[in-house]
Simulated assay, not measured.
Amino acid sequence: MPAERLLPTTEAEDLLALVRDIARDELAPHAAAHEESGTFPRDKFALLGKSGLLGLPYPERFGGGEQPYEVYLQALEEISSAWMSVGVGLSVHVMSSYALATFGSEEQRERWMPDLLEGAWLGAYALSESHAGSDAAALTTRATRSGDTYVVNGTKAWITHAGVADFYTLMARTADTGGKGVSCFFVPGSLPGIGAAHPERKMGLTGSITAQLQFTDVAVPAENLIGAEGDGLKIALSALDSGRLGISATAVGLAQAALDEAVAYAKQRTQFGRAIIDFQGLEFLLADMAAAVESARATYLAAARRRDRGLPFTRQAAIAKLVCTDAAMKVTTDAVQVLGGAGYTRDFPVERYMREAKVLQIFEGTNQIQRVVIGRELRR
């Protein structure tokens, strides 16, 4: 059954109705085949762009939807419920656009934001490295100033959309001063010297490309520096606060899909002359799954509403990411249990949902890092 939503405006209600139609008609029917073949659905992102969904939280004057995060995240949840790879890709694109939208100059935003928000360009967020995942300040990819360009060399790891993105929000070292020596750049994907390794062989989200991203003497114009030199880590962490809310919403969408599949199966599957949903042991399991989904949704919405009101939300975003992704892992695992042997086969989508849920506890800050963030905020 569709999630019940309390939306702030009639415009938001109409928007969510459109999103549900696209999710049902254009995304869900194609998800299984693409995930089976590992094919990246670039055409679906073009569709989202034409439908105005790639820039929902950004200003209308640049082509965005100017929607509050409370609304954007619920649209993202609906998309993720239909096709997780597309939902994660949308979240990554919105996060990749954040640095330019929030810290870019007016000239930079007028030049690039329309292409980002209207679907002409798809983005990627290039922060992590093989030895600098949770410890972002340890990154070694270097941008060396040479006249009116920065020459970039280094390798990024675990980059969603590596090799297929039209732009990269790149964090690179411009000085040997730890976290204070990291800067942020807007890097068009067409620049010479940018290459992607063979995509990672993942257990889930196989329709989404994840790979190492290599920079070899890439000449990035100095005018593509976002903010000032040394602002990169501040920009990156700020983007991650909002990005973690995106991952929280995708997690709840996945959990909702698993719950819906489990309930539908339990209603039609009979044992001992009764639908299995009528057995209290299974009924209680489904009730706990529903409670986990709805409480997780409430957690990310509470954080989003703080963001929309301009209040600090770092701690709340970390809590949402922790709660929502743990809930997704539990609910998808329980959905497999509800379907029993059928749930362990690829004839039903719940085994894929379970595989997809695991990475949510890892990327954009592991859930152990979320606990570090929460603890640090409590000590302030």
Rank of each mutant, 00 (worst) to 15 (best):
residue 159 I to M: 12
residue 63 G to T: 06
residue 272 F to A: 15
residue 375 G to S: 12
residue 224 N to H: 15
residue 271 Q to V: 13
residue 318 A to W: 13
residue 108 Q to V: 04
residue 75 A to S: 12
residue 202 K to V: 13
residue 221 P to A: 08
residue 4 E to I: 13
residue 22 I to A: 05
residue 176 D to Y: 01
residue 58 Y to P: 00
residue 54 L to H: 01
residue 363 F to R: 04
residue 309 R to N: 12
residue 107 E to Y: 11
residue 242 S to Q: 07
residue 298 A to E: 14
residue 245 L to H: 15
residue 10 T to M: 07
residue 110 E to N: 12
residue 117 L to P: 00
residue 352 R to E: 11
residue 48 L to R: 04
residue 171 M to S: 08
residue 221 P to C: 10
residue 69 Y to T: 00
residue 168 Y to Q: 02
residue 102 T to Q: 13
residue 47 L to P: 15
residue 258 A to D: 01
residue 322 L to Y: 15
residue 42 R to P: 05
residue 337 Q to A: 09
residue 112 W to S: 09
residue 174 T to Q: 01
residue 290 A to S: 09
residue 357 A to N: 06
residue 342 A to R: 13
residue 219 A to Y: 01
residue 331 V to N: 08
residue 29 P to Y: 04
residue 102 T to H: 14
residue 380 R to K: 13
residue 190 S to Y: 04
residue 227 G to C: 07
residue 55 G to L: 12
residue 77 E to W: 09
residue 247 I to R: 05
residue 113 M to S: 06
residue 17 A to N: 11
residue 113 M to Y: 03
residue 16 L to T: 08
residue 266 A to F: 05
residue 108 Q to M: 05
residue 192 P to G: 12
residue 240 L to M: 15
residue 260 D to L: 07
residue 333 T to L: 11
residue 321 K to I: 04
residue 30 H to Y: 06
residue 286 L to M: 06
residue 297 R to H: 09
residue 68 P to M: 01
residue 276 I to E: 04
residue 233 L to N: 03
residue 336 V to C: 04
residue 364 E to W: 13
residue 264 A to C: 06
residue 195 G to V: 03
residue 48 L to N: 04
residue 54 L to F: 00
residue 6 L to M: 10
residue 230 G to D: 01
residue 2 P to M: 07
residue 329 M to C: 08
residue 68 P to R: 02
residue 369 I to A: 12
residue 172 A to G: 02
residue 367 N to I: 11
residue 360 L to V: 00
residue 250 T to W: 14
residue 12 A to I: 01
residue 32 A to R: 10
residue 373 V to T: 12
residue 170 L to G: 02
residue 5 R to D: 03
residue 185 F to I: 10
residue 8 P to Q: 02
residue 78 E to S: 10
residue 31 A to Q: 12
residue 201 R to H: 14
residue 190 S to E: 14
residue 366 T to I: 03
residue 216 T to A: 14
residue 118 E to T: 15
residue 30 H to E: 10
residue 308 D to R: 08
residue 252 V to D: 05
residue 271 Q to T: 07
residue 164 V to L: 08
residue 20 R to V: 02
residue 120 A to R: 12
